[in-house]
Design a protein around this nucleic acid. Sequence first.
DNA 1: TTTACTATTGATAATGATTTTCATTATGCA
DNA 2: TGCATAATGAAAATCATTATCAATAGTAAA
Lengths: 150, 150
Amino acid sequence: MAAKQKDTYKIFTEFLAEQKQRMTNQRELILKTLCKQKKHVTAEQLYEILKKTDKSIGHATVYRTMKLLAEAGIARELNFGEGSVRYEPDTDNTHHDHLVCVDCGENVEFFDEEIEKLQNAIAEKHGYKLQDHSMNLYGTCSKCQEKKSN
Amino acid sequence: MAAKQKDTYKIFTEFLAEQKQRMTNQRELILKTLCKQKKHVTAEQLYEILKKTDKSIGHATVYRTMKLLAEAGIARELNFGEGSVRYEPDTDNTHHDHLVCVDCGENVEFFDEEIEKLQNAIAEKHGYKLQDHSMNLYGTCSKCQEKKSN
DNA sequence: TTTACTATTGATAATGATTTTCATTATGCA
DNA sequence: TGCATAATGAAAATCATTATCAATAGTAAA
């Protein structure tokens, strides 16, 4: 875990260096704080959390850094159609997709090798070089199903 | 084609009636215009197109109607992570997903029975009642790959 | 057909998320 | 140490979308 932390720090520093950008206190704090989150957070939510540690941190810095982290492959941008982007750390490079409850927002992460293969096959068939994908399944979780049936 | 046109009109009218809402000239025009589009359009783009026919149509009406059409199952909302929602007519109820070129925006529609089945199985496994999903594959189309290699 | 009711519209203001601007501050290297 | 460059935070700007509200139009009953 400490090792993993170090890794993303190193990855980020190197990513920044590549384009003559610098590691800063703010960027380090943002990275560290993102990695601590258990749930997918919006930039705004992360900003609120960060302010507890660094009272002076700015809105723009958070948004800017999240973009950088996404470019560096350290964070993943998730769009559940809520109007704002959510982020999740992608530290160990374990890609996965999401099953989201349309009622309570609770969500489950999953990975399906078979689907990934099929996606690749589809891209290839159409002459596309696949870079990424987003797949969200929307439904009602068991708890919310129960609530409704009452 | 004329028949299909009539169908969506009928579906929309019935959908509206169900909730004591009315079919209007504007709503009819918006539906007709949406169905004519070859590409996925944003509400803003559709508004620009509509203004050519009805100079007095309002922004809000377009946004409102698109929401209604989506609810009625006549239009599908697509989110390619651009910051605005795109719409496509879903007239013949043929669900499909998208393969999008990250460079030029060109996109291909596809449908894969196998993936759909796997998605259902995943939802079921987690106790979710699946309602919908969005799946976008992002890559570089063959044309853009060529351009880059030059 | 008129009336009375209710839904719809368009203009405009408001909102929310994100980005830009810009003066100030911090950092890295010659 | 000092300059050149990058980063920051505050505030303004932007962009997509939604809410407000007075004016208009459609509907159904009298």
